[in-house]
Design a protein around this nucleic acid. Structure first.
Length: 653
RNA sequence: GCCGGCGUAGCUCAGUGGUUAGAGCGACGGUCUCAUAAUCCGUAGGUCGUAGGUUCGACUCCUACCGCCGGCACCA
């Protein structure tokens, strides 16, 4: 039986961080779980390497696109090796086998009548490679705020509109197709509002896979990238995937576009898509602009890969957003791994060494613990199957607690001194502890392979944890007479401050190394740097065309004072302002700053506006100009202002 | 603005009509000594977001409101 699962292919515009590791660690864990169940498991990952953003990032690093993507793709591949993740195939979208598959998808869709050529005239954001519907010339991009360009281009379109009913039918027939349920509901809601055809080619980009017979065109990123799931296993015919593991931000592409493409091409559909949540840093979104992105390797180097794996899967409910913090990591590590699992192993193995010469005694074990073990095992396996890692782990650790209690109740150290009377009870107690330890170790092996391997060897097994199968997960499989291996602590207790300092130090080093790799200047700001520290800004566009002073003079920037401000009904982000710039009547201006500023805080504040911008209606209100604000990727805008007092109506030049 | 979710002990969360609302972590007190200053035992009193309502009875159902989150709309 085969089981094929995937992580997303990661976009190479940034170096790997803990978010990438999260997905890939989860995938590796699932792979190990499925192996225990006896499946031949294939896990694929890879890198998504096309598009203008990459062209640009490469240029910024002073490299050609292919040099640049080789470098970053290699960085991802190495990351998974360092973390010991069992990736079977690493698929790059720049490899020839992939291009052929994408072109094949295109031909099949074309032959089936789901692709047509059309013309698009309108606004386009070069940075995001995005067509901005309903935008006018001069408008800026809804995603990034950069100016859009007016383009007319011939494009290939995919008839997504033809798939509305087919997709709804798919979700109804296979409720597990998209999980968790909230994502499924969102997708359904989105589809029920109607699907539009999508453009699947671009003539504005060179760095991509060419459309067959249409040299000017390259494929749009999603038409290209999704196919990596098929090209990765092209040679051993593993398609369809049993599971696509993704982040919640790419649900729509996987749950809507992807099955539609496949149906159009007449290829089988993946069985299940599971979208996990985001990893936050101390409850804030991790983002470049905040400078609070955490990498996996510093954590690995201080506490070990297992600590990272355990933390991510135990602390965060899979499917929901979760928070990473160094304090929580250390707390989990010490409470669960050092005091719980590590200590149980240490005390159990030490007692067998001391009291029984390192040999597993003969016993059936305590019936109550055996029963508890049976129930907990069943429950945990059930949770694992549902990808509810946190609940599974919680359950497994209740068995550890039960055994700790059991040991105290029987006090083997007293039995050992009690002569012949205590021999049987001592044997039973030691066997029970060791067998429970064996079972717990086997259950935890998919999550903590390194520690499990160590304990496994200490229990005296010559087989490896990769040999563990479902049949081993039953009480009583530990054999009497088995000789323990050399014993050594698996999770030494961590001193919080020391460990955190060390992780932060390594984190800073890793940031510097990654930035050098990307051709960016060293950035001293630590992840916990105060807000005043300069955040890492996106590189300034290399290709912003230069303008003359006359061009600049066309822009009439004026200082004004906000007379009143009010929220715009029906819009989260909009404020309706009246700004006095020294004209007879204040200007009516609608600005997308409601998330950053309260209306009452703006009244009386001096702002800069573009006074000669063509008026435009927004939500029925006329906007006679635009407020100047600085914005960072993924962040709220910050209004421009002055340190000195400036009269109303003053012109900026 | 529309749709959905959430708001329970310091922290993370469980609990969906019925006796005194639970767990883990943290904190405090005690205990054993096999063990990683670990284990084990005990304690900690949280208006179950706010205000109404239904009911013999609500954390659990309904309504409104507040706050947070997500999706859509929106972002000049």
């Amino acid at each position: 039986m085969k089981y094929y699962l995937t992580t997303p292919i990661y976009y190479v515009n940034a170096a790997p961080h803990i978010g990438h590791a999260y997905t890939t660690i989860a995938a590796d864990t699932i792979k190990r779980l499925k192996r225990i169940q006896g499946y031949d498991v294939i896990l694929t990952t890879g890198t998504d390497e096309h598009g203008q953003k990459i062209e640009r990032a490469a240029a910024a690093a002073g490299k050609s696109p292919s040099e640049f993507t080789d470098l970053i793709s290699g960085e991802f591949r190495r990351q998974w090796e360092i973390l010991g993740l069992g990736v079977d195939r690493f698929q790059r979208t720049t490899s020839p086998n992939h291009a052929a598959m994408v072109q094949e998808l295109f031909r099949r869709c074309l032959d089936a009548g789901y692709v047509y050529k059309g013309t698009y005239t309108g606004q386009y954001c070069v940075f995001d490679e995005l067509y901005v519907n309903d935008a006018k010339p001069g408008d800026s991009c809804p995603e990034c705020g950069r100016p859009t360009e007016t383009i007319t281009e011939e494009n290939f379109y995919f008839k997504l509109s033809a798939f509305q009913d087919k997709l709804i039918e798919l979700y109804e027939k296979h409720p597990e197709f998209i999980q968790p349920e909230t994502r499924r509901n969102e997708v359904l809601g989105f589809i029920q509002r109607g699907l539009k055809d999508i453009s699947i080619s671009r003539t504005t980009i060179k760095w991509g896979i060419p459309v067959p017979g249409e040299d000017k065109h390259v494929f749009y990123v999603w038409f290209d990238a999704l196919m990596a799931y098929m090209s990765a296993v092209e040679h051993d015919k593993q398609w369809p995937a049993d599971l696509h593991l993704i982040g919640k931000e790419i649900v729509r592409f996987h749950a809507i576009y992807w099955p539609a493409f496949l149906i159009a091409a007449g290829w089988p559909l993946p069985k299940r898509i599971f979208a996990h949540g985001w990893l936050l840093f101390e409850n804030d979104k991790m983002s470049k602009s905040r400078g609070n992105i955490v990498r996996a390797t510093p954590i690995q180097r201080v506490l070990g890969t297992d600590a990272l794996r355990y933390f991510l899967l135990r602390e965060v409910v899979f499917g929901q957003d979760g928070s990473f913090s160094y304090d929580a990591l250390i707390a989990r590590y010490n409470a669960d791994l050092a005091n719980g699992l590590g200590n149980l192993a240490a005390r159990t193995l030490a007692m067998i060494n001391q009291y029984r010469g390192g040999v597993i005694p003969a016993s059936d074990g305590d019936p109550q613990i055996a029963q508890a073990a049976k129930e907990i095992t069943g429950f945990a396996l059930d949770c694992f199957e549902k990808l509810d890692f946190s609940k599974a782990l919680e359950a497994i650790f209740t068995l550890i607690a039960a055994v700790d209690k059991f040991i105290v109740e029987h006090a083997p150290w007293k039995l050992a001194k009690g002569g012949d009377a205590g021999v049987k009870e001592l044997d039973d107690t030691l066997y029970t502890s060791a067998e429970a330890l064996r079972l717990v170790t086997a259950l935890l092996a998919p999550v903590m392979p390194d520690a499990a391997a160590k304990i496994w060897a200490q229990l005296g097994f010559s087989s490896t944890i990769d040999d563990i199968r479902a049949g081993d997960l039953h009480w009583g499989h530990l054999k009497r007479g088995q000789k323990l291996g050399p014993v050594e602590g698996v999770f030494p207790r961590a001193v919080a401050k020391e460990s955190i300092d060390k992780m932060r130090e390594l984190e800073a080093e890793e940031v510097t190394r990654q930035r050098a790799l990307l051709g960016q200047p060293a950035e001293p700001a630590a992840p916990d740097a105060p807000a005043s520290a300069a955040p890492a800004l996106a590189p300034i566009r290399e290709d912003v065309s230069q303008i003359s002073i006359d061009d600049f003079a066309k822009v009439d920037l004026r200082v004004g004072i906000v007379k009143d401000a009010a929220r715009v009904k029906g819009a989260d982000k909009l404020l309706h302002l009246h700004v006095d710039i020294g004209e007879p009547e204040p200007r009516s201006i609608v600005a997308g700053i409601a998330l950053a500023y309260k209306p009452e805080d703006l009244v009386g504040r001096k702002v800069v506006i573009v006074a000669n911008l063509a008026p435009r209606k927004l939500r029925g209100l006329e906007s006679q100009g635009m407020i100047v604000a600085a914005s960072r990727e993924g962040d709220v805008p910050v209004l421009a202002g002055f340190h000195e007092d400036v009269p109303i109506g003053a012109k900026l030049k």
